[in-house]
């Protein structure tokens, strides 16, 4: 019995290990937190020239960095972002800025991109280019590298949370789960969560997953293990009581 349990657990352990993603984004994501983002002048599709601060002062921002000629991660990244945010936009607590980091991109290119994702009329989404992309990249430690062989940028799929004072509150690298998105949205709205988990850890028996949407912790598989001893005890109590019942004598009644 005991051996079986151990074996099962070990087998599950192996499976999890096999699936574990090897993100090394841990460090990059921690850079520049609570630093001010560079206040770049923007050319926003369908709008006049304005500064980044005018956008974030109005509402906290999620900043996504892409380039239109990307044949890699940018498209799935934006698609996923759109899908992720579909059900999170009701509270209307933030805007999304999709900014090109490729100097070749024009405002027209960005307009086309918006159309492609059916977002050109969505008031929450802005598509923009800037002529100070280097300074902006520096302020968020974003380093796209031009690869002349494939004629593409080698870059991270980066999402930056900016609160209404222009501080970087959180960064997400790679296409991430909805849960991380919730943490990001909470952070730009200055909702403090006293803890978070490191992205590279993928553990089977975690007790709780913080849900910033509700501000509560969702129960994890590990919680079963905390409750297990008490449940086992109660079950055993009932079980034993049932089996010794016939042996129970009539207790003399006290008057």
């Amino acid at each position: 019995m005991f051996k079986n349990i151990v074996f099962t657990i070990i087998t599950i352990g192996f499976c999890i290990k096999g699936n574990a993603q090897t993100v090394s984004a841990e460090v990059k994501e921690e850079r520049n937190i609570y630093e001010k983002i560079y206040d770049a002048p923007l050319n926003v599709a369908g709008k006049q020239q304005l500064s980044l601060h005018e956008l974030y002062n109005e509402k906290p921002l999620l900043l996504a960095l892409v380039f239109t000629r990307c044949s890699g991660v940018c498209n799935p990244f934006l698609l996923q972002l759109k899908e992720n945010l579909q059900f999170r936009t009701k509270d209307n607590s933030f805007n999304v800025l999709v900014l090109s980091f490729d100097p070749r991109d024009s405002i027209k290119d960005m307009n086309l991109l918006a159309k492609k994702f059916d977002l050109e009329n969505n008031k929450q989404w802005f598509f923009a280019v800037t002529d100070s992309i280097t300074k902006l990249n520096q302020s968020i430690s974003f380093n796209p590298v031009w690869d002349s062989v494939i004629n593409q940028y080698d870059h991270d799929a980066l999402l930056v949370g900016i609160n209404s004072e222009g501080y970087i509150t959180k960064k997400l690298i790679g296409i991430r789960r909805g849960h991380d998105m919730d943490l990001l949205i909470a952070s730009v709205n200055n909702v403090f969560s006293p803890t978070y988990r490191l992205p590279s850890k993928n553990l089977l028996f975690s007790c709780f997953n913080y849900d910033p949407k509700t501000g509560k912790n969702k129960l994890g598989l590990g919680l079963i293990f905390i409750a297990l001893p008490a449940v086992l005890t109660v079950l055993m109590l009932i079980f034993i009581s049932y089996f010794v019942k016939h042996k129970r004598p009539e207790i003399e009644e006290t008057s």
Binding site: E26, E29, R31, Y34
Partner: peptide, 25 residues
């Protein structure tokens, strides 16, 4: 409900603390 003026990253390891204003690898 406040935004910190400064963030310090701390990584503890037997038997020392690493403190840095940048993220710690």
């Amino acid at each position: 409900d406040e935004t910190p003026a400064k963030v310090v990253h701390v990584a503890a390891r037997q038997f020392t603390f690493f403190l840095s204003e940048k993220a710690i690898d």
